[in-house]
Design a binder for these strands. Structure first.
Lengths: 168, 168
DNA sequence: AGGTTTTAGTTGTTGCTTCAAGTAATCATC
DNA sequence: GATGATTACTTGAAGCAACAACTAAAACCT
């Protein structure tokens, strides 16, 4: 659209272009692969699994919705709908935070915990087959470092990795 | 679910786990970043842009829907809806293939070509800021190689890169 | 204390995606 | 050269996500 005032487009080199096409292909295929594996084996969407798994890793097996939303890069609206569904299926329950009347905690039920325990191995196996089995030893470290740098641009506060607030 | 016959889950090492969390964060954030940039600057979804851009790169500025679907990892159904919309906006037109009465060609209109020309620089700039400006020189090559390996598992036929059929 | 602002979450609408079913042209086979 | 199978797409219904508008609690600010 507004193409004129721009000094000059810095087009991609061939090397960059190839890397880009491959990266974009990965970001298209990887989510849908995980999606269908989880749907088939656990009856959950990847997002639903991710929410349950994240809550399951806390000591109390409960998390503030705001916190879940931040760590999953989801809007509170989306999360509210999804948590409503998961609650309807009996995997978690909502209760108002004792410290803050606005906030609600999502707490895993026994069924929810069981669901995670049952689904995790298959999911990890899938991750292993798709990602790590394909890579040489050194490449895991390389991938990690590269993604860390990309996240520096995509998520400067590192909210998604749950490191949002590291107190001073 | 069926968790028993599995020999033993091969859990992720710490290094792998970190790499995995970062990779998954990237696959969550990168698409939505491109999505909002394109929506804002060009009024297109990333998928719509990708379809137009892919067609624009052919000599005739036209492609079979099947081919587009394969290269974008989209179902024909999804593509049919999207192409319908893009046609409604005047960015492309459909016509039946002369060689195969079942197949249809999507051909860019002048407006469609203009749209791609207008949107591409901003999009490339965004890609550069988010991805390549963050990386050291060697890392572009590393990323490219790593993604190529992942695609080996995700897309063994390399359909997405448009290399599906290399005739004998 | 009172009023504004910010934060946390919910709800409803709109639109895109997926899924299932259907049509029509072509290929394959006998 | 008819019949069955496959391929290429279309269509309609259902579900999920994005967006906007709303409620309510807490924090902030004199």
């Amino acid at each position: 659209m507004a193409d004129f005032p721009t000094p000059e487009t810095r087009w991609l080199t061939d090397e960059e272009r190839t890397a880009w096409l491959r990266l974009i292909a990965v970001t298209m295929l990887l989510p849908s692969r995980l999606e269908s594996e989880l749907k088939r084996d656990a009856g959950l969407s990847h997002f639903e699994y991710y929410v349950l798994a994240m809550i399951s890793e806390t000591p109390e097996r409960s998390l503030l919705l705001t916190e879940v939303a931040a760590r999953t890069n989801s809007s509170l609206s989306r999360l509210s709908h999804v948590v409503g569904r998961l609650e309807g299926q009996g995997f978690l329950s909502r209760c108002t935070s004792p410290h803050d009347g606005r906030a609600s905690l999502a707490r895993l039920t026994e069924a929810g915990w069981a669901k995670v325990v049952a689904s995790a191995p298959g999911h990890v196996e899938e991750v292993r087959t798709v990602v790590f089995d394909s890579l040489e030893d050194g490449q895991v470290q390389q991938l990690s470092e590269i993604c860390a740098r990309l996240l520096g641009a995509l998520d400067p506060q590192h909210v998604l990795l749950g490191l949002g607030e590291r107190l001073p």
